[in-house]
């Protein structure tokens, strides 16, 4: 039984990480109807910047260092997010949907190679400055950091929902999402709103990057690719464009993967092994697209007409 609980906890932690990244995808999709495939790379850059700030200032206490690293990473990511939108998406706003998708992938490759040139091909070990004490939950273990990740993912989802539902900016975002020309006629500067969406999404990516690399204590220029793909799957599973959906999708995907990898060998008598872990994510994606294309939580907060 404790093994089962441990697998659920593993899944929740993994799922929260997916959810953190998925929030960025879903937010941009919700407002613009565009899948920002460079988001995974922005997460990677957030992780790299945070890592190097922490390494550059070894003397400071964690309580100062972590927020500082986070702020630096967020500033860099926000700048990159702003630039991506400006360079790769804005000129294509009236182009067919496939065009920005291709530039997104182009941007993602550029960012990946840029990171490789700046930070090299080596794996970077994330310094153990975040709390990693182990706690016992019904015979299973969870580290403090993992609890922090779950909490942060929840808080970020809540904060974003408030932002979109309750603030002036949020209202402008919803208006932009519903009908950009009309929103513009009503005095909303849609260029500004879309830029703001990307900037906020990229700040989330910085947080996600820090959390992911602290949890696995690893940062590498290649880390954004698979993470981005899984997070995207999570966003679609929950209902892309819906913030709660991204959270739900992430957690569910994490648990499915974890239980799948843990039990598939026993269930199939060794015919299928645990290396099929990644397959579950994509099976789930195909299943959802066939049977419930709008995702588990079908209605989106911000729908594009």
């Amino acid at each position: 039984m404790d093994i089962f609980i441990q697998q659920i906890i593993n899944g929740l932690v993994l799922g929260s990480i997916y959810a953190l990244v998925a929030l960025g995808y879903t937010m941009v999709y919700g407002i613009m109807g565009l899948i920002n495939f460079a988001h995974g790379e922005v997460v990677m850059i957030g992780a790299m910047v945070a890592l190097f700030v922490i390494k550059a200032l070894p003397g400071l206490p964690a309580i100062v260092l972590v927020p500082l690293a986070l702020v630096c990473a967020a500033i860099v990511c926000m700048t990159i997010g702003f630039a991506i939108e400006r360079i790769a998406y804005r000129p294509l706003r009236r182009a067919p949907k496939l065009a920005p998708l291709i530039t997104a992938i182009g941007v993602s490759i550029i960012l990946q190679n840029l990171a490789m040139l700046i930070w090299g091909r080596n794996y970077h070990a994330f310094p153990p400055i975040l709390p990693s004490g182990e706690h016992d939950v019904f015979g299973a273990t969870i580290t403090s950091l993992q609890i922090v990740i779950i909490v942060v993912a929840g808080l970020m989802m809540g904060g974003l929902t408030l932002l979109i539902r309750r603030t002036r900016l949020g209202r402008a975002m919803r208006a932009t999402s519903e009908n950009p020309p009309i929103a513009q006629l009503m005095g909303v500067n849609i260029n500004q709103i879309i830029s703001a969406t990307f900037v906020i999404g990229s700040a989330l990516a910085a947080v996600a990057g820090l959390m992911v690399s602290a949890n696995y204590s690893i940062a590498h220029y290649y880390m954004g690719f698979m993470l981005g793909l899984k997070a995207f799957t999570a966003a679609v599973l929950g209902g892309i464009g819906n913030l709660a959906g991204a959270m739900l999708g992430g957690l569910l995907l994490g648990v499915i993967e974890s239980l799948g990898a843990g039990y598939i060998g026993d269930l199939t008598g060794g015919f299928l092994g645990s290396h099929y872990q990644d397959i579950f994510a994509f099976f789930v994606l195909i299943g959802v697209l066939i049977f419930r294309p709008s995702g588990l939580i079908g209605e989106r907060v911000a729908e594009r007409a």
Binding site: Q6, G262, G273, D278
Partner: peptide, 22 residues
């Protein structure tokens, strides 16, 4: 006791390690 598998791109091994722990 058991043979488990991962990939050369994976970063999360919690699921298979938990199984091994058992």
């Amino acid at each position: 006791a058991t043979r488990e598998f991962t990939t050369d791109k994976a970063t999360d091994f919690a699921a298979i390690l938990t199984k091994i722990k058992s």
